[in-house]
Nucleic acid binder design. Sequence first.
DNA 1: GTCTATACTTGGATAGAC
DNA 2: GTCTATCCAAGTATAGAC
Lengths: 219, 219
Amino acid sequence: MAKSGVASRPRGATSTGAATRQALVEAAIETLKSEGFAGTSARAIATRAGCNQALVFYHFGSVVDLLLAALDQVGTRRMQHYRAALGEVTTPAGLAAVAADVFREDMDTGDVAVLVEMIAGSSSTPGLGAEVAARIAPWREFAQSALEAGLSGSPLGSVLPLGEFSHAAVALYLGLEMLSHLDGDRSRATALFDRALQVASLLDAFTTSPPVPAAKEHP
Amino acid sequence: MAKSGVASRPRGATSTGAATRQALVEAAIETLKSEGFAGTSARAIATRAGCNQALVFYHFGSVVDLLLAALDQVGTRRMQHYRAALGEVTTPAGLAAVAADVFREDMDTGDVAVLVEMIAGSSSTPGLGAEVAARIAPWREFAQSALEAGLSGSPLGSVLPLGEFSHAAVALYLGLEMLSHLDGDRSRATALFDRALQVASLLDAFTTSPPVPAAKEHP
DNA sequence: GTCTATACTTGGATAGAC
DNA sequence: GTCTATCCAAGTATAGAC
């Protein structure tokens, strides 16, 4: 009911405040990445957003609610990107290649660190755990559909227990991010994805891939 | 220097203070498990230990130093237990059975949650990351020797890149704990270990190996 | 060694001026 | 919508009595 239409805002004013709202979300994300859950206070966020601490409570009511909004943002952002990257993946090697790519990006952006910090931080705030869990669930579903897509051509697809594998995939992803972030060394994780690509390519070779209309990739 | 010998303590006195020191470490562990890194303050720990908040600083100098002592304690404790459980494992199925057992225990005790909280909490305190990383390293080494032991009889042992796999194993372990702890649902993780046991048993069957003593217990 | 008391800092949250 | 000012709770850490 508030937040209503058209917003006849005065000349030159800094928009409707939606801009600062967005700035706060973005600042919350960055603060979670670099300072962790324990270091992400209303003051720290506001400073990074270049605005006043009180605005956190005006726009979001509380710090944790802002943090959840940040988690939502990073979630939908990454999910869109993952879906696009998954694109026309139909083979194990294709899946592995995309996974390696995407993981490398996630190391660079640090987006997954936001997830990790929110999960670990959940223990300290009553009720937060359930909220975070609800926002993690889609990732498991996505992982499963990715596995299905990548193994659709392979006999493995109908044999492997994809429900359990998808859970493992999410867990592994989070664990790798956590360890890489800890010592700042992503080489171990990338080496692992390289290896996965090798194995997947081997799988491809064993699978008679009949149609596969020579992809529409462009160089 | 300090902490010197023999401590001719008065009759009936509560030992030399080593007892409260230990109580503080134990309380720190429990607080990390239930309140998370962000919720683990000197006051919270002292309350749980049944002593005064000032003793944290008397015995450990700072909260983070106590937390690191707690991490050490949980680390050596679990490492001892893991080594014992690994015992005479020489086959994939044996390894999988032990791993499932041990993970189930870790879910119950929550010891791995301490690791996870410390890793995630590292971001918020300068210098803590390196300390924690140093204490994680032994786990990767242990995982590797466990894999070597479990695959010693199998041709897989000489083919698989154990260095990379051990890193993945640690990451997976941490990730599974994190997710299980989040929604309080350990069924997904245990289902996964059950599945691993099936696969490992299959591997055993393909490997002509001498009579092997069966796993110690089964449901 | 352990406690009480206290100094100082930071954080969450609200009221009110602009 | 945004800022200043402020209240209050909680945290780290130290000093000093017992």
